[in-house]
């Protein structure tokens, strides 16, 4: 399981990379593996705002549909269009090429609620994996 140290993780299996003002969000290696071959990705438009734990997009594999929940509150400043065009990128490279959106954080304090790589690893173990 690939869990980069410099990222923060959510219980809904998203990762967040932040400079304190903006953040890049994607789904974890574990999430892409659980989903299987991803065939469709739906992402929000620039300027859309959402609260933490709201859904902001959809990821579909052949046999499942999954909402993506916002790990932090924010306003979208960029969506990863190539992922929408070629969803398999999410399977191949979830942490780099497969990022989903960049947001401007509404409340940077929320970053503190996220898990470190170690904590996320422990969380996955607890979940039975």
């Amino acid at each position: 399981m690939n869990l980069p140290e410099d990222l923060k993780y959510s219980r809904e299996h998203e990762w967040v990379k932040s400079d304190g003002k903006t953040a890049t969000i994607g789904i974890t290696d574990y999430a892409q593996e659980r989903l299987g071959e991803i065939v469709f990705v739906e992402l929000p438009n620039d300027g859309e705002e959402f609260e933490k734990d709201e859904t902001f997009g959809v990821v579909e594999s052949v046999k499942s549909v999954n909402d993506i929940y916002a790990p932090v509150s924010g306003r979208v400043i960029e969506s990863n269009d190539p992922v929408v065009e070629t969803p398999e990128i999410l399977n191949e490279d979830p942490y780099a090429e497969g990022w989903l959106i960049k947001v401007e954080l509404t409340d940077p304090r929320e970053l503190k609620d996220l898990m470190s790589a170690k904590e996320y690893e422990a969380f996955l173990k607890e979940e039975g994996e």
Binding site: F40, E60, V62, K63, S64, V65
Partner: peptide, 12 residues
């Protein structure tokens, strides 16, 4: 595109 259908999406 079975993901639109009831056996996967259920109430949605």
């Amino acid at each position: 595109l079975a993901t639109r259908e009831q056996h996967i999406r259920r109430e949605r």
